[in-house]
Design a protein around this nucleic acid. Structure first.
Lengths: 189, 189
DNA sequence: AATTATAGTAAACATTTGTTCACTGTCAAG
DNA sequence: CTTGACAGTGAACAAATGTTTACTATAATT
């Protein structure tokens, strides 16, 4: 099976963050002719695992992507090949890497929206937010992660926790937004 | 500033999933001499953004990684350079890509542990689980995502929801584990 | 038994690659 | 005003790259 060879290619990419050259692939695949490499690579290209754009070889997104299985209630054959999508978590969660950063959450102020102590949130830097967004903000010079709200006349912005334990936070002086939470990531164990 | 040039390099990598050749970089960076490219690349190599392993150029992990900010309660200068770590979400969450897959969660049976309808869980294929693990399992031939438990004598395995609405699930016939949830991912909006 | 596809070897080759060397203009520091 | 560092040009080049062509052995199909 060439699945093993594909896995060794993936392993190489994972380790070196690039595709090996054909000469290197000789060793990786156990070939002694570059033509064998050439043919195998082209097979993967037509399979959609790799791409060649004017002669330049690169992995396609399918190369990295993990299978995404749909609704498990949908029935029995959830592991069937047909309803597989593929995605990379990074690509799924992050639009613009240059304006995105991560923040390790501490505290229980957002448990109501399913964000727990130790979770990592993906934040996109921006100065404006919509009502209901979870924002990283500075309220009276103190940093915090809360829900962005406006009073009913939409005159005053304030922050709210997602935990009945905490009151609403109205700024005494000012409220500055630095970013909006786009995603939540939790590692178990 | 060469930050802009670095961003255009990142943009290229994001688009083509490989680094451009030096000739291609001419256009990307706006140089007309490959030597200018050469020097810039070497600067990035010594900055730790790229690596050269016997002449082969590749991005280092810092190239992709997003800054991870620590505890926001720690005080004022959370955006300071010092306490920055860098990580890629994929690398953070996924150990062995070959045995990992994703599953879109439906239903409210795990809200107690902060897993909501529409979340994506990262599952590692395995047949065994520890008590308390969230598992993808087949209970009496029906697929489900629940918490793995054993009764107090540790004789019988069963499944439990994280929602008082649902009872415990004791298998009539058999209970087969297919994978263990390693992480939870939620995209907002 | 003959035929054909498949998987690989081996050698040859034009093209492109990353690197090096010599040089130029600009700007800040002594 | 000179000096040295910095950022970039331009040309030259050995080494490596991906591709092509011709050939072989094995297995599968007719």
């Amino acid at each position: 099976m060439s699945t093993e060879r594909l896995n060794s290619l993936k392993k190489f990419f994972k380790k070196y963050r690039r595709l090996p050259s054909y000469s290197e692939m000789l060793g990786i695949f156990g070939f002694s002719s570059k033509n064998a490499v050439f043919k195998l690579i082209n097979k993967w290209v037509s399979d959609g695992l790799l791409t060649k754009i004017d002669g330049k070889l690169a992995p396609s997104s399918r190369f990295f992507a993990l299978p995404l299985l749909g609704n498990i209630k949908a029935g029995y054959p959830i592991l069937a090949e047909e309803n597989k999508q593929y995605l990379t978590i990074d690509d799924y969660l992050i639009n613009d890497p240059t304006s995105t950063f991560l923040l390790k959450v501490s505290g229980d102020s957002l448990i109501g929206v399913g964000i727990f102590d130790g979770d990592i949130v993906v934040i996109e830097s921006k100065k404006q937010a919509n009502i209901g967004d979870i924002v990283l903000a500075q309220i009276d010079r103190e940093w915090t992660l809360k829900i962005f709200k406006k009073d009913r006349m939409k005159r005053i912005s304030y922050l709210e926790a997602a935990n009945p334990k905490y009151p609403a936070f109205y700024p005494r002086e000012d409220l500055q937004i630095f970013g909006v939470v786009k995603a939540v990531v939790r590692k178990l164990n």
